[in-house]
Design a protein around this nucleic acid. Structure first.
Lengths: 188, 188
DNA sequence: GCAGGGAACCTAGCGATGCTAGAATTGGGC
DNA sequence: GCCCAATTCTAGCATCGCTAGGTTCCCTGC
């Protein structure tokens, strides 16, 4: 292995180390606790090292979000493939979405709540993000009128349920009941 | 007028001045630009004066949010009263909700996105907030199964549409189309 | 083996934030 | 006209994201 290659590999490892530390710290104490100083301390480097990998704190959060898009997309596609019957597919995909948000709340927050520079619904939209949205479209079944609009609405409902429940604005305990009604309303 | 009374009135006026300045500055440059120093400058007092009215910046935003709840509640109730036909009522109430969010995005943000200490769906829920939610329940019409759950779902969908559109995660331009589908799905 | 040079890294610091302790000023009551 | 209490301001703390400039390390060519 050449020396530049080794250097590059070590850089990549440190990149991963930063992402892992950021996510771990955020999961433990929230994004506000993820300061550049604490992050630098966790990886045993000084602050400026972070800026050799990322443009800034927002960029680190965006990178965590990108990983989240990939994770979410594979989870949703898995449900689309494994369930049988249109209604079951829709239900399982929605349940998987809600489950993802519940299991990784801070990653979800980075993906869909906090301001990242990530472009949605445009040419530059990351593939993983596009794939996750396409899984929603697919879950609604074929031959729907205005499938894009319908999927946007479904996503809006799911997202609303997530953030309002996470911030205790609607009772998290009734999430299941809401899911039942949601599936009923969006099945044909 | 007694002297304590005059003092109290002047304090109340300054309280309003602070709220108005905070909202105005937020509307112009976003909540991040609302710093205690700039706010103090706008009302021609020093920083600590703010803390004689509010516990801190978050408390100021919560106060702005409270005014927003009242405004939203009256707007929604107006639509419930003025429209005829179940479907029209639902449509107009939803449109009014979306319109409120569009016309006062930063107030909406303080109400439903940023972490305020305000209690939702509990004993201590402010009356205005409860009234706004009740207007949603009423808009869905009488004799619905699980009206609370259904209203939570409707609210989730509306809220999701607002925040995803505001952060450019779904195209703001198709808001009307989404509203049409939403009303269709939630009408019986 | 050993300088030279470039990449990698850290120390130290800037400006700005929310918030507060303690001094200074104001204004009503005697 | 003086005093006391309430009100307001000055000045500062700790922390934030971010960066300039100097130091250290390691690879390269002799």
């Amino acid at each position: 292995m050449s020396i530049p290659e080794r250097r590059e590999r070590q850089r990549a490892e440190r990149y991963e180390l930063i992402l892992a530390a950021a996510q771990e710290l955020a999961e433990a104490e929230g994004w506000d606790a993820v300061t550049t100083r604490r992050l630098a301390g966790l990886i045993d480097y000084s602050q400026p090292v972070l800026y050799s990998h990322f443009k800034g704190k927002a960029d680190i959060m965006a990178a965590v979000a990108m990983r989240g898009f990939e994770d979410l997309a594979t989870r949703l596609r898995l449900e689309t493939a494994n369930a049988t019957g249109a209604r079951n597919v829709l239900r399982n995909v929605c349940a998987a979405y809600l489950d993802f948000a519940r299991s990784r709340p801070v990653v979800y927050e980075a993906m869909f709540v906090l301001p990242t520079g990530i472009k949605f619904a445009s040419e530059e939209t990351p593939a993983a993000l596009r794939a996750a949205f396409d899984a929603l479209v697919a879950a609604l079944g074929p031959d729907r009128p205005e499938p894009g609009i319908l999927a946007e609405l479904l996503w809006s409902a799911l997202h609303g349920m997530v953030v309002l429940a996470q911030s205790d604005r609607i009772p998290p305990a009734s999430a299941e009941a809401r899911l039942n009604v949601l599936v009923e309303k969006f099945s044909r």
